[in-house]
């Protein structure tokens, strides 16, 4: 359980790695809402997975496309 929580926290850090500077008007607490999922243990991990799996998949398929393009250029 503890280990899983750490994994969830790590996922949170991974998300932060892509942080961009924000020049926005007042935020309604979006960050706080997402944090509640990160702090939610196993149930939170499931929600995070559902929230982000499409994005991860998209990322993966983009990379595949890029790799393929790279391979083609080599030959």
């Amino acid at each position: 359980m503890k280990r899983l929580l750490n994994v969830v926290m790590l996922a949170g850090f991974c998300l932060l790695m892509s942080e961009r500077p924000a020049h926005a008007y007042l935020d309604a607490g979006t960050g706080a809402m997402i944090l509640q999922v990160l702090l939610g243990g196993i149930a939170g991990a499931v929600v995070i997975f559902r929230l982000y799996w499409r994005r991860f998949l998209a990322l993966f398929s983009n990379r595949r496309a890029e790799d393929d393009a790279l391979d083609t250029s080599k030959t």
Binding site: L15, L16, E19, A24, L35
Partner: peptide, 8 residues
């Protein structure tokens, strides 16, 4: 960090 990340 999340506040800054998701502010916009």
């Amino acid at each position: 960090k999340l506040e800054a990340r998701y502010a916009d």
